[in-house]
Computed example of a mutant assay.
Amino acid sequence: MDDVEITDVNDDGSLYQVEKAPLKNQDLSSISLTVGELLSQYGWYLLVVTVLVYLVIQHLSKRRSSQSSRSSPPQTPQDAVLVARRQEAMEAARRKMQEELDAKASIFREKQKQQEEEKRKQKIEIWECMQQGKSYKGTAQPSQATGEASSSTTVLKPKADKKPLRGADYNPLTGQGGGSCSWRPGRRGPSSGG
């Protein structure tokens, strides 16, 4: 806007002039400046007060909800009976599950004992076979080995002392005293390859 000048004439004839200042844009800029100034001076205080008010409101709402739950009408006898029945049913289900678990555990223990007994019998059979000089194959079943031992009526004789297959002067490292084969170390020195 343009500056407006108003000229007035006084009673005595002198001119009276009134000048109006230019109008400013009257939007929210003055308010934002005021708020910005307040925040810059008291911002931390306002933040702390806001957080405290929020916490007090939360505390009061919790207290009010707990008081309202306390003031609710007491349970009727039917509700108490219903709760007792549910607890008994849950306890019965727990007992049943525990009994099943105990039964499975006892079956598992029995199987473990049977396996240990079979392993023990197998080790005894292996030891007996070794004492008699027999060879024991690990793939043979323990029941077959006991059946074979009971059916055989012949007694095995212990084997006589074994004689060395080669002469007493045999030494494989020297290459002497052997048969047609002998090993000789290779030549030392650089290889002849190129």
Rank of each mutant, 00 (worst) to 15 (best):
V53S: 13
Q58I: 04
L60W: 12
K62Q: 14
K62T: 14
K62C: 13
R64Q: 08
S65V: 02
S66D: 13
Q67H: 05
Q67Y: 08
S69V: 05
R70E: 09
S72W: 02
P73Y: 05
P73I: 08
P74V: 01
Q75Y: 05
Q75L: 14
Q78K: 03
D79M: 09
D79E: 11
D79G: 10
A80K: 14
A80D: 03
A80M: 10
L82N: 12
R85Y: 01
R85P: 01
M90E: 07
E91R: 15
A93H: 06
R94M: 01
R95P: 00
M97Q: 10
Q98C: 04
E99F: 07
E100W: 08
L101F: 12
A103S: 09
K104G: 03
A105D: 02
I107C: 02
I107D: 04
F108A: 14
F108W: 05
K111V: 03
Q112W: 04
Q112Y: 04
Q114W: 05
Q114F: 09
Q115W: 12
E118F: 05
R120W: 15
Q122P: 00
I126A: 13
G133M: 00
K134W: 12
S135C: 03
S135R: 08
K137M: 08
K137T: 05
K137I: 04
T139L: 05
A140L: 11
A140H: 09
Q141M: 06
S143E: 14
A145I: 14
A145S: 06
G147C: 07
E148S: 03
T153A: 06
T154W: 05
V155P: 00
V155N: 07
L156A: 14
L156Q: 13
P158A: 14
D161H: 07
L165R: 08
D169L: 10
D169T: 08
D169C: 10
Y170N: 00
N171F: 04
L173K: 15
T174E: 05
T174S: 15
G175P: 01
Q176Y: 09
G178E: 09
G179C: 04
G179W: 04
G179Q: 12
C181P: 01
